[in-house]
Nucleic acid binder design. Structure first.
Lengths: 146, 146
DNA sequence: AAAGACTCTTTCACACACGAATGAATCGGC
DNA sequence: GCCGATTCATTCGTGTGTGAAAGAGTCTTT
């Protein structure tokens, strides 16, 4: 608790620190139980929910730049988690979808993430969890309009 | 707003996405106006407030692992922002403090961060900003007991 | 149809994070 | 005093992110 005081009244630092801690936790669990990283799991999760997507769309949803997505998908492709194919309709773009193996990993990752988020909710209590969710959603949405 | 739905009910992803956006914004401003990165600014900020510290202490406050701090401080030292010296009392450890140049950069960064956080507060409104602050602080604190 | 503008992805060089292993100094028990 | 355990920092290899620039394809304008 003492250490939090150092960044008091600096919402930005608070978000960054919290994100780092959560990422570390989630990554450890996912690596252990599903054999994928936290970053990869976010993509798997998205593809599982929404199906085949373009790289740019993934980046938009996850707030990642084009080079980040490109590299992430390349590593996932090499790991056999996703399949990348040219978009016939617009041959500049590439479409990404889950492989068989990727779908299994995605479902495992989804379950782990679900459990983790449930624990977060419990740790925070319903009110704070709801408030956090609401505030972050607003933060992200308001960012969209610059 | 539509894109937020994809990660709905996944607090972890929400925190990560928000952190990435904020980091990118803050980094751009700091690089432009103070010539330091967002990660470096967090260290500068800490040293400005609390004075000379050990590497481990910095990592604890900012939720960074030892290798991350070591590299970050090395780059900052090379850039002339901080000075690293052996701790005479415990010669395993090293102490880090601001250089002259570092102090100036720290004050600039502090002002920029202050402005940015004020904008965040304004964008969110007092209630949501307060709720966010409260929830994140609790999240970080509750993580400590793991 | 050709030229130029625009969009999507990749490549490049770099910063920043991690876990695992290593080196160096201190501490604790004997 | 000495030896093993512990602690603090660094190094190593890798993954993940960035901005800038390049490459490839599409669209728009004439």
């Amino acid at each position: 608790m003492a250490r939090v005081r150092a960044v008091d009244r600096r919402l930005y630092l608070l978000v960054e620190i919290a994100a780092r801690r959560l990422h570390r936790d989630v990554d450890a669990r996912l690596t252990q139980s599903a054999g994928v990283s936290a970053s990869q799991a976010a993509v798997l999760f998205l593809l599982l929910r929404r199906g085949e997507r373009r790289l740019g769309s993934i980046g938009e949803t996850l707030a990642l730049g084009a080079p980040a997505v490109s590299g992430l998908i390349s590593r996932m492709e090499k790991a056999g988690l996703v399949i990348r194919r040219k978009d016939a309709a617009d041959r500049r773009g590439a479409l990404v979808d889950l492989s068989e193996h990727g779908r299994i990993a995605a479902e495992q990752a989804d379950a782990i993430l679900r459990t983790y988020n449930a624990e977060l909710d419990e740790r925070l209590g319903e009110d704070d969890a709801e408030a956090l969710h609401h505030a972050l959603t607003r933060l992200i949405a308001s960012e969209d309009q610059g």
